[in-house]
Amino acid sequence: MSAKEIVIQLATALFSSFDPEAANALLDPGYIQHNPAVPTGAAAIVGFVPALEQSGFQADTHRVIAEGNLVVLHSTFSNAQIIGAETVIAFEVFRVADGKVVEHWDNLQPAVPADQTANGNSMTDGAVEVVDLEKTAENKALVSDFMADVLYGAAPQKITEYISTESYTQHNPMVGNGLEGLGKALAAMAEAGQPMAYSETHLVVAEGNFVFAASEGTLGEAPTAFFDLFRVEDGKIVEHWDTLSTIPAEMAHENGKF
């Protein structure tokens, strides 16, 4: 099986069929966990499966992106009070080795309904099809350069070289569509004393027209994890999804958020 197939089977066992035996067969016993609230090791997550089933937990995966041994799932979790809110938007990253899932990162954010967002979009709607596989390396380089120049501040004036000035669909609930919406949101955050700053990107996963990045930084003074997904079309970023969460000082393991 490919890494993508292994991860899809694991997600099904954990979140849909609630099958601890099937999940355990796909997990390395030394599974490295980065979710701050879950202890490390396969036994901890497998042991959580019955509680998920009893809670009525539901998972709906919208996008799957894979590069090498890394697989990214973009999902909505419903009836998810057991993990913090009724509806949660999740980015999860799984690392596969020797046919087993050996490591997991995620970033969860309570969902904001589409009729309450600044852009009128939901946090998960939009394009889902992976295309332009031959442009994977090119698109990954574009997004990496965008992050260096714009998000890290090396050359923010170059933003129009990366983001389409004609069509830029935003799914962050606090940000309007288009470059104008992004500029207004960043200015408003700074004025409110909550500037957003990226300090390090730990993972970048690209497949065709989608490029995912997992980064850390600050929102205001709070240590924050930024998981971003970009869609590229004709050499420009045309769509963006993300989740943000505060990085807690104490975790259920010693692996860190990243």
Rank of each mutant, 00 (worst) to 15 (best):
Q58G: 12
D60N: 15
H62G: 04
V64P: 00
I65T: 05
G68L: 06
G68V: 06
L73G: 06
S75G: 03
T76C: 06
N79P: 07
N79C: 07
N79M: 06
Q81V: 09
T87D: 10
T87V: 13
T87I: 04
V88E: 04
I89G: 03
I89V: 15
I89H: 01
F91G: 11
F91S: 11
F91Y: 12
F94Y: 15
V96E: 01
V96W: 01
A97D: 13
A97S: 13
D98V: 05
V101K: 01
V101E: 03
V101C: 13
V102F: 01
N107Y: 02
P110R: 10
A111Y: 05
D115A: 09
Q116W: 08
A118D: 12
A118H: 13
G120N: 12
N121D: 07
N121A: 09
T124N: 07
D125A: 01
V128D: 10
V130E: 02
V131G: 08
V131M: 12
D132M: 04
L133H: 13
A137R: 06
E138G: 00
A141L: 10
V143L: 02
S144E: 14
D145H: 15
M147N: 12
V150W: 02
V150A: 00
Y152E: 11
P156W: 00
Q157S: 14
I159A: 04
E161C: 04
Y162I: 04
T165H: 05
S167K: 15
S167M: 13
Y168L: 07
